[in-house]
């Protein structure tokens, strides 16, 4: 298979609480992901737009994440931080955070 940095093999690992750091999810940038936040909210089939490349945990932008949810075909962009993410996985694969078939947000 042709290798490139924009190629993701079948990725169904769910990264669990306290294991989510920016380094682990930077390769998901641009891909569709399911996210569970620490308030229990599940965000399904969101496009992970941006993960802050800041390596220093003491910096304010460390772990900043931007994602987009599409509603009625329109993109709605949100920001969060990896510290608030308890689980994240690629969307639509077995074992994904929203593997019950839901494709939108759960509140």
């Amino acid at each position: 298979m042709y290798y490139n940095t924009h190629f993701n093999p079948y990725f169904n690992n769910v990264i669990a609480h306290r294991l989510v750091n920016p380094d682990q999810i930077v390769n998901l940038e641009g891909f569709y992901v399911d996210i569970e936040l620490d308030n229990g909210q599940k965000i399904c089939n969101a496009k992970l737009d941006y993960v802050s490349p800041e390596p220093d945990e003491t910096q304010a932008i460390y772990g900043d994440v931007t994602y987009t949810i599409f509603s009625a075909g329109q993109p709605y962009t949100y920001q969060t931080n990896t510290r608030k993410i308890t689980r994240i996985s690629q969307s639509g694969v077995p074992g994904a955070v929203c593997s019950d078939g839901m494709r939108s947000c759960k509140f």
């Binding site: 641009g30 949810i69 599409f70 075909g73 993109p75 962009t77 939108s104 947000c105």
Partner: peptide, 25 residues
């Protein structure tokens, strides 16, 4: 596609628009 209830986003589109994505999967 139907609209879905969403929390207040950081950026909100101004209407039914077709936008060109940077990447596609």
């Amino acid at each position: 596609p139907q609209p879905q209830p969403l929390p207040l986003p950081q950026t909100r589109p101004e209407g039914p628009l077709i936008l060109i994505p940077e990447y596609i999967i």
